[in-house]
Design a binder for these strands. Structure first.
Lengths: 201, 201
DNA sequence: GACAACATACCAACTGGTCGGTATTTATGC
DNA sequence: GCATAAATACCGACCAGTTGGTATGTTGTC
């Protein structure tokens, strides 16, 4: 395994545990077992590593969700609910192990580095997009609910990100699981209604 | 105005804009117009300032919500919905001006400083608690919905925190407003149902 | 004259980043 | 097939600036 991927791998762990700013280049190098020279050979700056880490995160999580079993339902609504269940199952173990790299990093970086912010948004928006087809199919099957697939997909991500914040603050994954249960209930309620209601977008 | 409160006031702005770690003591002093000696006279460490800033945040936002007009509805459900509307109205202007100090800070601090983490949780949980009475009254009036007041109150906070993350990532407050609209719809759907449904907690 | 509220000067540790150098792989020419 | 040239990967000492924090004042006030 090359020094570059080793650095990226430890970056995911370190940044999720301590944040981007508090994670120093020296720490990263020590944890990855590489020298500073190697670091700046592969990344022209710490910021560049942040961008690469966000992209690396998109790839690894993308592969995880792509092969996850929640896709194997015939009904689109069941696929959405199974996705939410899957997200809930991921919440286990230590907090840095299940929380989101880009959600953590963007809070620090959005005002400091446009590159990192954009990479985080690409990651979040890209993942949300993988839900849109199922949401659109559910709307087609169960009727227009007055929400767009894109907007509802982003809402699920917001709720999950917020659930992570509460889990960190309380130092208790349980509160995140509660929130994801509420999210599931929301989707159930939304599609259980008959057809479209009169309501502004 | 004393140096202490001046430091706390600028800390709210600086930390919301750049994060806790990236905000240096020197910057804080310069922005507040005080010397480093004054800083360490009032706070024994940077961490102590972080804790004090979270408490200061609780006080200032507590006063804002206490006097906000959303309490002036006869119906408890209307009070909840008006609260959510109020949160939505607060989303305007620059991103650091409407996002949450403790939600930002806890992401960096939860693994580094127990004191800051606990102070952030006190702030979030304390604010959520102000919603519980209205939620309990709504449940009493509209029937048991299978959710506890505490859990639903925390869910609203998670969603709003997540909405801020998305707004920061996209660099666009609009996505946060969308999320808050979804939250409002959720509460409406939840209490529009008749009585309790058969469903696990 | 005691005590709180500041100011100034200073410090060791650490920060991200540079730079000259070397080992290893890969491409090229004959 | 093989020498050689040229990238690429990596090393580790070094650097200037910044970090949080301290030690020693100087005020003003009761």
């Amino acid at each position: 395994m090359t020094a570059r991927t080793r650095l990226l791998d430890v970056a995911l762990d370190e940044i999720r545990a301590k944040g981007y700013c508090a994670t120093s280049v020296d720490e990263l190098c020590a944890a990855a077992g590489v020298t500073k020279g190697a670091f700046f050979h592969h990344f022209k700056s710490k910021e560049a590593l942040g961008v690469a880490a966000a992209d690396h995160w998109s790839e690894t999580t993308g592969a995880l969700f792509e092969t996850a079993p929640y896709h194997h339902h015939d009904d689109p609504l069941q696929r959405i609910l199974a996705y939410i269940e899957f997200r809930k199952e991921l919440v286990s173990g230590e907090i840095p192990d299940f929380t989101c790299l880009v959600g953590t990093m963007v809070q620090e970086a959005y005002g400091v580095s446009d590159g990192i912010r954009d990479a985080c948004w690409r990651s979040i928006a890209g993942h949300a997009q993988t839900l849109e087809a199922d949401i659109a199919a559910a709307i087609k099957k169960y009727g227009d609910k007055g929400v767009t697939p894109k907007s509802l997909a982003l809402y699920t991500q917001a709720t999950i990100q917020g659930a992570f914040i509460l889990a960190k603050a309380k130092n208790d994954p349980g509160v995140a699981i509660d929130c994801i249960n509420h999210l599931k209930r929301h989707v159930e309620l939304l599609f259980k209604r008959e057809g479209r209601e009169a309501r502004k977008p």
